[in-house]
Computed example of a mutant assay.
Amino acid sequence: MSQHDPNQPQWGSQQPGQQPQWGQPGYQAPPQPPKKHTVRNVFIGIGGVFVALIVVGVAVGGGSDKKSDTAKDAPAVSTSKPAVEKADETPAAKPKAKPAEKKKGDVVTFKVWGNAPAGALGPIQTTYGSDSENIEGKGVPMTKTLKVSKDAMYYSVTAQLQGSGDIHCSVSVGGKTKTAHAQGGYNICSAQLSGGLLGGWS
């Protein structure tokens, strides 16, 4: 057996000025280094990226809305050219008013035409007018007009041959016409229109 050297330190003994070793009285374990939270750091990083994307999206979207609002609020600019009135253009001349046409029925027309040679008693004898007046006509052909009277009961024309001839006669008033015919000898051509109670002629 070897002898113990009193100058050598024994296991478990504490030298002056040294920290106590494991197994010695007063020994304290060294502090553990803090654990690294790897998973938490990953989630924090991902969250930060999402927040950044949202902020960028809001900024971009807000800018586009402002542009659209500005475009809507801007007044519309017309590109069409304003109509230019011609200074030299003169107003169109108004058509002249036509003279008032005479209403049918304002006048009565008498006619006698054909072949009526003069005889022993002279030329053809013609009369025309109404129940209140008779006017003598001359020769053939003959056309005469009179104003229509409200009080007239009828209008007529007569023409008598003087030994020979062939004649026609007519009277027209209010759009109505009556005609007659006479031939040879001393025959008479007579046409007449009568006024009705309602103002018509027949």
Rank of each mutant, 00 (worst) to 15 (best):
K67E: 06
E101S: 03
G61D: 03
A76H: 07
P91I: 04
K67C: 01
S78A: 08
P99N: 00
G57V: 09
A59D: 04
G105E: 01
F110W: 04
A74G: 00
G61L: 13
P91F: 07
A59P: 02
G62K: 04
V77E: 06
G62E: 06
P99D: 01
A97K: 04
V84T: 13
K94W: 02
A59R: 09
S68W: 12
A74L: 13
G61T: 07
G105D: 04
A71K: 09
K111N: 09
A92M: 03
K72R: 10
D65C: 06
V58Y: 07
A76N: 09
V60T: 09
P75L: 08
K86Q: 05
K86F: 04
K104R: 07
F110H: 01
G63S: 14
D65G: 06
A93D: 02
A71S: 08
V56L: 15
S64P: 00
G62T: 09
K66D: 12
D73R: 15
V108P: 00
A92Y: 02
V84M: 10
P95Q: 00
K111T: 06
T109H: 05
D106G: 03
A76M: 08
A83C: 07
K102I: 07
K104A: 13
V107M: 13
S64I: 12
A59N: 07
T70S: 11
V58D: 01
V77I: 08
A97T: 08
A92C: 00
G61A: 14
K67V: 05
G61P: 01
K104S: 12
E85A: 15
K81V: 13
G105R: 00
D88R: 01
V60S: 06
D69M: 15
G105N: 02
G62W: 13
S64N: 10
P91G: 03
E85T: 11
K96V: 11
K103A: 12
K98N: 02
P95G: 00
K94F: 02
A93Q: 05
G105M: 04
K72F: 14
S78M: 06
A87D: 08
E101R: 02
E89N: 06
A76V: 10
T109K: 15
D69S: 15
D106C: 02
T70K: 15
V56M: 14
G62Y: 15
K98H: 00
G105F: 06
D88G: 10
S64L: 15
D88V: 05
S80N: 08
V84K: 12
T70W: 12
G61W: 14
S68V: 10
F110A: 01
T79G: 12
K94C: 00
K66Y: 12
V84Y: 06
K102H: 05
S78L: 11
D69A: 15
D65N: 11
G63K: 15
P95W: 01
S64W: 10
E101A: 08
K98R: 02
K72L: 13
